[in-house]
Design a protein around this nucleic acid. Structure first.
Length: 654
DNA sequence: GTGACCGTTCTCTAGACAGCATGTC
DNA sequence: CTAGAGAACGGTCAC
């Protein structure tokens, strides 16, 4: 099928042709045959880099009205925004937490790119641009199955569908086990394929050799590995060096941040061939200009040899710099944690996955197959590499066994996508938001919306009315919903539901009901305290001790010092030293409060990062969050009639 | 006394979305 | 059903 046969405006066709796109890839042909250009709904479960964006563009450009493109990451939003902005005659807007356009601007746009949460929030706040949509594209729909964020996505999609039944929905998914489930739910055609524009072979390394799934093999010269100490790191280094020596770029995935950094250090010392010194020095200079923390200078150091590390402790600006430098081939290697598995486009000739297990809270667990496949899928750059290679590294004694890796990740398919909306807290926040936004005003209305979710589609037998009843009861208990005194069975005709003022604020501020409740409690305690004791620390403690504020790690050495700090400032805290529900968690909150207090006192990033042993990227993320939560606390304080300007003041200081 | 070497214990662990009101190029 | 890397520490021994 030829591009010029597509029902697109002339300038757009020229744009594609000048970009070298003439014939469609097989998945794209399938999408057109399924009717993407005629307003048909579609679920495309195809590998990354096989032309998903083009399918999305086809849908959006042929839709009879404005389109919305939903992404899971801010960085991805920016990337897509830039791509779409190149389309001639098409206006594009972007809406994410850090990059926001006004409501009026967005109504004007042909295409709006936004994160799922932002769309959810826009719906809650009654934004008008969501009203007139003709087409919605959902990127990475398989995130439906993710614990924290899947529920938001499915409720948002259910709401959008209920608002505009004729809406065209195009969902793009990685290859998963049950794409037909998603297609059924959305009442869409399914296009499923494993076709890729660049062939990919996946292999497992064991004892000096890689065996690929196309029966080819590769000898690896891991010279330093002694007879008894077969070392995964050694093998990884050799695999990386080999790829670079053959003129390719390489991505190495490891388990933790520290290991990403130490692997990068190591590879940098080995002086991989091919890195142009002048260029690397220039890049290192750019890195140094963006900060003076230890992490930063360490990164600059490895970059000098054409190697970088990438994880969430690194500032987002540094991460973006590393990503683009790699795309421009100025960097040879990136050692990364799974940050890089999904996200912006960073393809490489070879991908090496060294650690296939990860520590999760209390135990070591295998990485999900889907995640590993996404890492491997980064191998092979269209038009640049003849092929892509992904290598999983197995170890001997104690390490992952080669056969096990083969069975688990090469032979076996990915997991099925499973709705996580049944989780209590997810249900609570979404039931509240559905009522608060005026979408439903009765239990029956809530159940009705719930019926349209992926959850209901997957578990039709769950008694949703009963579920709603119990969740409503909890929210009423928290004084966020007004259940109108009815019993909820509808028999007495009093099935009326309304959000209380508090419920409305909690929903619009986009905090979870639990956080809302904690804020209320904190604000009330603070209001009852001796005014002289209500300080910056008070406000920070209240806000940091909520589920929406992600905690930090509290090292054993720090604990004693933190306890002492808590004791000396006990009068300023809303929680007594002895009556915290979870003392450990509370100490973490205190640590964060202390970090932010240092920040407002004017301490430099370098000092804070050093003193509390957190990454500059973590600090950055946390600061964004406190600011938001302090705003929410301020709004809650207004509802409970507490005269506490502290929250606002501290927020301004931050 | 000093330093190389080696076994033992201790420490620590991925990621990242959202509000709102002004101000600014 | 399930951990394991690496730093820090501490001790031994040769010179």
């Amino acid at each position: 099928m030829h591009v010029r046969d597509l029902p697109l405006p002339g300038p757009i066709l020229e744009h594609y042709e000048s970009g070298g796109i003439e014939t469609l890839y097989p998945p794209q042909v399938a999408a057109v045959e399924a009717g993407v250009t005629e307003g048909e709904r579609l679920v495309a479960a195809i590998p990354t880099a096989s032309g998903k964006t083009f399918i999305a563009e086809l849908a959006m450009l042929t839709a009879d009205g404005p389109a919305l493109y939903i992404v899971p990451l801010r960085a991805l939003a920016r990337e897509k925004y830039e791509t779409f902005a190149e389309l001639p005659g098409v206006s594009v807007g972007i809406s994410t937490g850090d990059f926001d356009a006004t409501d009026e601007d967005l109504v004007e746009e042909d295409i709006v790119v936004a994160t799922a949460e932002k769309v959810d929030s826009a719906i809650r706040n009654g934004a008008s641009w969501v009203e007139s949509l003709a087409c919605v594209v959902v990127d990475e729909v398989h995130l439906l199955g993710s614990e924290g964020r899947g529920p938001t996505l499915e409720v948002t999609l259910a709401t959008l569908q209920r608002r505009a039944p004729g809406l065209q929905i195009v969902a793009l998914s990685a290859t998963v086990d049950n794409p037909e489930d998603i297609a059924d739910w959305l009442d869409a055609e399914l296009v499923e394929t494993t076709w890729r524009p660049v062939s990919l072979r996946t292999g497992v390394y064991a004892d000096g050799d890689v065996t690929f799934d196309d029966d080819s093999t590769l000898g690896v010269d891991a010279d330093a590995a002694g007879p008894d100490g077969e070392d995964e790191t050694e093998a990884t280094a050799a695999l990386v060096a080999d790829a670079v020596a053959n003129g390719g770029q390489c991505l190495a995935f490891v388990r933790s941040r520290r290991e990403a950094e130490s692997l990068a250090d190591r590879l940098a010392r080995e002086e991989l061939t091919g890195a142009s010194p002048a260029d690397c020095d220039a890049l290192a200079e750019e890195v140094r200009e963006l900060g003076a923390t230890e992490t930063c200078s360490r990164l600059a150091g490895t970059v000098e040899s054409g190697v970088a590390f990438h994880h969430a402790g690194v500032r987002s600006e540094h991460r973006a710099l590393v990503e683009s430098a790699f795309r421009e081939r100025r960097l040879k290697v990136i050692c990364a944690t799974p940050t890089l598995a999904a996200g912006v486009n960073v393809p490489a000739r070879r991908v090496v996955v060294r650690d296939l297990k990860r520590y999760t809270g209390e135990r070591m667990a295998w990485l999900p197959v889907l995640e590993v496949h996404q890492m491997c899928g980064r191998a092979g750059r269209p038009h640049l590499d003849p092929y892509g290679e992904a290598v999983l590294v197995s170890g001997t004694d104690g390490g992952p066994d080669a056969d096990e890796l083969w069975d688990r990740y090469v032979t076996a398919g990915p997991e099925a996508v499973q709705s996580k909306l049944a989780a209590r807290d997810a249900l609570r926040t979404h039931v509240l938001s559905v009522v608060a936004s005026g979408f439903a005003d009765s239990r029956a209305g809530v159940v009705d919306l719930l019926d349209a979710t992926f959850f209901a589609h997957q578990s039709p037998d769950v008694d949703r009315a009963r579920l709603v009843d119990s969740v409503v009861a909890e929210l009423a208990e928290m004084e966020m919903l007004d259940a109108g005194g009815g019993t909820g069975d509808g028999a007495d005709g009093t099935d009326r539901l309304a959000a209380t003022e508090l419920g409305g604020v909690v929903s619009r501020q986009y905090v979870t009901p639990e956080t809302g409740a904690r804020l209320v409690a904190g604000v009330e305690t603070a209001a009852a305290m001796d005014a002289a004791n209500v300080t910056e620390l008070t406000a920070l403690e209240v806000v940091c001790d909520t589920p929406d504020m992600q905690g930090t790690y509290l090292g054993n050495r720090e604990r004693a010092a933190m306890y002492r700090f808590a004791s000396t400032h006990a009068a300023e805290f809303t929680t007594g030293l002895n009556d915290a529900d979870d003392f450990e968690e509370w100490l973490c909150a205190v640590k964060l409060a202390r970090i932010f207090a240092d920040w407002t006192a004017g301490e430099s990033v370098e000092t804070i990062v050093d003193r509390y042993r957190i990454g500059p990227g973590d600090l950055e993320a946390r600061l964004e969050r406190v600011e938001w939560l302090l705003g929410a606390a301020d709004a809650v304080a207004a509802v409970v009639d507490a005269d506490l300007p502290v929250f606002r003041e501290v927020r301004d200081r931050i």
